[in-house]
Amino acid sequence: MPDLAPASPADAYAALLEGNARFVHGERLHPNQDADRRSAVVPRQRPFAVLFGCSDSRLAAEIIFDRGLGDLFVVRTAGHVAGPEVLGSIEYGVHVLEAPLVVVLGHDLCGAVTAASEADRDGVAPAGYIGDVVERVMPSILWARAAGCTDIDQFVQAHIRRTVDGLVGRSALLATEVAAGRCAIVGLSYRLADGTVSVVSSKGSLPEGV
């Protein structure tokens, strides 16, 4: 079976947008979800994008981008917070599996961002390891407030932007791949009500306006 996966950052990004448009309009093709595809990817995976998203149950990557087996290398945490394991997983997807695109996927009404905003306002952090998630989101809240942001959706966009910046800033490997044009990183915000995505920020070689 020939490998027809998008090979450039721009082509990978276009494929995701096309899939999202099909999902939004109820015209999904369900590509690469049959027995032939299952067999074809047994010896090797070659995903065309690393999807680093929030763990929210309404944000299932293969569904909202209308993709299938072997297409996306998915990493998800609450509030898309990135610890060493996450960075290593994303680096693996880019450096070893040669995915030309990394997507940071956040969404409106994000619970982790809301919790961090409330903790900042009230001065009380959630108990347990939920508090650790909130602590990792908190710098984005503080940065957004300093920039004049006041509502949750503005905080969400600020957190997506800072996550994109943080991937390049913290990972020398990702920074090198982006600088060489082999990979691009784009931050997208997903709207729960209508299923659309919009660009928040990007790094690397992508179409003008992204």
Score class of each variant (00 low, 15 high):
66 D>I: 06
97 L>V: 00
28 R>C: 11
176 T>Q: 14
56 D>K: 07
49 A>V: 06
48 F>G: 02
43 P>I: 09
203 K>R: 15
209 G>L: 09
159 H>Q: 07
40 A>G: 11
74 V>W: 10
111 G>H: 05
78 A>G: 13
129 Y>I: 14
81 V>M: 12
69 L>C: 01
37 R>I: 11
90 I>Y: 09
101 L>E: 03
131 G>E: 02
78 A>M: 07
160 I>R: 01
122 D>I: 00
55 S>Y: 08
204 G>K: 08
90 I>K: 06
7 A>M: 13
179 A>W: 11
4 L>C: 11
139 P>N: 08
166 G>Q: 12
88 G>S: 14
74 V>E: 09
147 A>W: 09
99 A>H: 03
209 G>C: 09
210 V>C: 07
74 V>N: 01
141 I>N: 01
197 V>R: 03
149 C>M: 15
90 I>V: 15
40 A>P: 03
9 P>L: 06
101 L>C: 09
112 A>Y: 05
122 D>K: 00
6 P>H: 06
209 G>E: 09
140 S>R: 04
64 I>M: 07
21 A>F: 06
84 P>G: 02
33 Q>G: 05
62 E>C: 02
192 L>K: 13
62 E>R: 11
23 F>C: 00
69 L>Q: 01
113 V>M: 04
122 D>Y: 00
163 T>C: 11
53 G>S: 11
16 L>A: 09
38 R>M: 13
114 T>V: 08
155 F>Y: 15
54 C>I: 07
6 P>M: 07
49 A>N: 02
43 P>R: 08
184 A>E: 03
169 G>P: 11
6 P>N: 12
121 R>P: 02
119 A>G: 07
142 L>W: 10
139 P>F: 05
21 A>L: 13
34 D>E: 15
2 P>D: 01
142 L>T: 15
125 A>W: 13
103 V>I: 15
139 P>R: 07
33 Q>K: 11
55 S>H: 11
2 P>W: 00
91 E>A: 02
19 G>K: 05
39 S>C: 02
23 F>D: 02
153 D>W: 05
196 T>R: 15
108 D>M: 03
154 Q>W: 02
123 G>M: 10
19 G>A: 09
38 R>I: 11
133 V>H: 03
55 S>T: 13
130 I>Q: 08
143 W>S: 03
196 T>E: 12
164 V>F: 10
73 F>L: 01
66 D>Y: 02
88 G>D: 12
41 V>R: 08
152 I>Y: 01
138 M>G: 03
131 G>S: 03
141 I>R: 00
126 P>E: 10
152 I>E: 04
156 V>Y: 06
39 S>A: 15
163 T>S: 14
107 H>K: 10
111 G>F: 10
97 L>W: 02
13 Y>C: 08
129 Y>R: 14
177 E>L: 14
129 Y>P: 03
181 G>I: 10
204 G>A: 10
97 L>R: 01
210 V>G: 00
115 A>N: 04
92 Y>W: 12
11 D>H: 12
10 A>Y: 09
84 P>A: 13
183 C>T: 14
167 L>C: 04
122 D>Q: 01
141 I>G: 01
29 L>M: 05
67 R>S: 08
61 A>N: 04
195 G>N: 06
200 V>Y: 00
151 D>W: 04
52 F>M: 13
91 E>R: 05
147 A>M: 14
17 L>K: 14
204 G>I: 07
157 Q>L: 08
202 S>W: 00
174 L>C: 06
